[in-house]
Nucleic acid binder design. Structure first.
Lengths: 90, 90
DNA sequence: ATAATATATGCGTCATTCTGCATATATAAT
DNA sequence: ATTATATATGCAGAATGACGCATATATTAT
């Protein structure tokens, strides 16, 4: 169970309400920034800011298609791990 | 995958280096505050402070035995979940 | 080239959190 | 009661992070 300290950035990034909202909205799908803005009600710069953190933490990855940038969760096992956390802490 | 927002406190609490050190040291065992202080090299008040947050987040639970307070991880499945995170993010 | 839409970045401010230090409380022994 | 050890708490300063706003960059269409 060594190296847990390396997870600091991950948990730091997950420990913010708006980023969790974004993750919950994206789920196992792909979503453009605009879609995320509309779904969350956050300002576009704020969403971009949080998406950047999620990408830099390697929680999400992006794919540009024309003028749109689609975000998705990089490793779908993360969603399973989140379910485990939900079981542990109601 | 709803309610993920409820995990904010958990991830916030896990997203700090000293607390991760404490978790890593405790593992599946019980440890007194003094043992944690010695193992981490942190000051005793600082360790107490972080332990309080871990307890309030229901990540850890305590048991007093005489003058000692032993801390342990409340649900051992958390350790498995951390392993999954380590697999996802090297 | 200009305009329109989509996304990203820079900066200042406010709020939150970590830490050190001093001190308080709890338990046990003499 | 006093002393010693174990743990917890209060407060102030420093560091960090979120947010709003303005603006920059990228892409497509006219």
């Amino acid at each position: 169970m060594a190296d847990v300290i390396g997870l600091q950035i991950i948990f730091q990034t997950l420990g913010e309400a708006n980023r969790l909202k974004i993750i919950e909205f994206i789920g196992d799908k792909e979503r453009s920034v605009t879609e995320i803005v509309e779904a969350t009600g956050l300002s576009q710069p704020l969403v971009s800011h949080h998406l950047r953190m999620l990408r830099e933490a390697r929680i999400m990855e992006t794919q540009r298609e024309g003028p749109f940038v689609y975000y998705r969760i990089r490793d779908q096992r993360l969603l399973e791990a989140l379910k485990v956390f939900l079981e542990i802490f109601n």
